[in-house]
Amino acid sequence: MRLLTHNMLSSNIKGVTNGFPLLIEVEKVVEKQVDFNEDFLRNMFAKIEWKALVEASRTMGYTELPENSESSMLNSDEFLRKFHHALLELHLEEGALVCPETGRKFPVNKGIPNMLLHEDEV
């Protein structure tokens, strides 16, 4: 699971109002190189919750992202490379995503988060 996916996931439990971002419990992180594409990063920048990405990447052991961001930073190649690495190259292979409101854990196995709910959570 890339942090792109993490940035797009929120707790889907019935009644939860503050389900984003999900906390990350790390068991295993892998890094995989991905072709660098500026256009995609520029397209996605507006859709990314920056704070959530910064916190998630720190949890995964990557501390290079600036605390705050603004669109003018997209002119910097150095910034784009860091953004690219955090968003697409860090994978949570094993671990869990945790609902910030209820503490409910969604397992991540073989890089795939399981967001299926129990009957009483739907």
Binding site: M1, R2, L9, S10, F20, E49, I112, P113, M115, L117
Partner: peptide, 14 residues
């Protein structure tokens, strides 16, 4: 980006 879920539950908001 793979997610085990019912339709798009968990992804719908973001």
């Amino acid at each position: 980006e793979l997610v085990t879920t019912d339709i798009a539950s968990g992804l719908e908001t973001r």
